[in-house]
Design a protein around this nucleic acid. Sequence first.
RNA 1: GGCUGGGUGGCAGAGUGGUUAUGCAGCGGCCUGCAAAGCCGUGAACGUCGGUUCGAUUCCGUCCCCAGCCUCCA
Length: 458
Amino acid sequence: MFLYNTKTQRKEEFFPQDPSRVTMYVCGPTVYGYAHIGNARPAVIFDVLARLLRREFPRVVYVRNITDIDDKINAAAMAQGISIADITSTYTQAYHDDLEALGVLAPDVEPRVTNHIPQIIEMIDSLLQAGHAYEAQDHVLFDVSSFNDYGELSHRNRADMLAGARVEIAPYKRDPADFVLWKPSSEDLPGWDSPWGRGRPGWHIECSTMAEAHLGDTIDIHGGGRDLIFPHHENENAQSVCAHNGISFCRYWVHNGLITVESEKMAKSVGNILLVRDLLKQAPGEAIRLALLNAHYRGPLDWTEEGVMQARRSLDRLYQALRDMHDVPVVDSSQRKIPDTFLNCLRDDLNTPKALAILFGLAREAHTAADKAQKSRIKNEMLAAGDLLGLLQQDPEVWFGGADAGLDTAHIEHLIKQREAARMSKDFEKADRIRDMLLEQGVILEDVADGTRWRVAS
RNA sequence: GGCUGGGUGGCAGAGUGGUUAUGCAGCGGCCUGCAAAGCCGUGAACGUCGGUUCGAUUCCGUCCCCAGCCUCCA
């Protein structure tokens, strides 16, 4: 399979360092608020990548961290007048709930920063020992000038960075590019004892430490949003390489594009942050997931209400095919074959839109297939391919039933029976009246070969 | 200003040096009591200006537009 590597700026064939154990680290959320759609995109993208890797390789260790130490968390606790622990546990739970609604499977390991303080201190200490860091005014800073390859990931050089610098340089830095590994905490802030006094870790060291703790010195894949390339991942790379005597930290850097909302950037200052839990009130999680997978992961994605509607209708089409095959037998999920055409799309830098096109092709085949054996093959393929994308695993009846639309199913069935009776006696006026009545409630009827079925309008 | 990614039909969105993406929407037909679903057919595109080429949406360069980042920071 091939992945686009940010570091080399090329699509490269993916070879794990150890084929028997693929390692992937993805930057998770800082838990100080509800997840927005921009947080959801990498979670869904790398969920698909993890699913693909798991079927291509015997073992995959996927780590996605929870950042539960951060000044933004401290500020949120202060603002809401509750403890830091309450903030982090509340929003960690909310994050899990939101992702579950989007069909995102749990990673193999979900480390938290607060559980890795000794390892963080150890790593900072080794950076100091190796001459890559220095202490200044109760801070420990990374010495960027000690690492020749600084900038290799984000493709910037020091001169460029300085030219655009618009932030005041902290006086304790030897060089403007140096960044904090450890900083002092006042009594009212969370802190841990360290060789450099009571304090807390800086921004980037946590990811270096947790990747090392769970995956080793060199990892295969590191993922995250494009906005993290600099400074976060650049710094993470510098720390890890320098703490490990120059050993390569990450073999493939994979970054997803960012989301805009109705053509505008999503930002607090614009006031257009879309929370996953709010979107879930408007559309099923599966539709939101499809809307995220409908564009290639590396490109930008403009989020619109229309886009979610289209995703929902696209799922209608796929589930319609499965619904028509409700009586077609399937084999056990472990026996199902995924078409190579479909797999090859995903193997080619996770081309989900192209893979979806294959899935739609199967849906068409399903409608035109002549015999049952053919339909059985198609149904198995659709379910297996869908599973790789985290789609189509619901019972079609549940999808079309609108789950929580608050409909009185018994009442609907009753009206359908009345209409059937009316049709039998050729009282089409009455039959149409009943159909219109249901349509007003958002219920669409379909007269098919073996009776009348209904679905919620999308 | 620097670095990075993107600009494709009404909308979303793949892809390709010359030949159908796909989904939604439109149009015509079939099916249907009528619809819906489905099927068949159909119109419609590659930001700008140049260059390379027999031929470019696809390669190269210019410019324009959109987005992100430019170091502890909302």
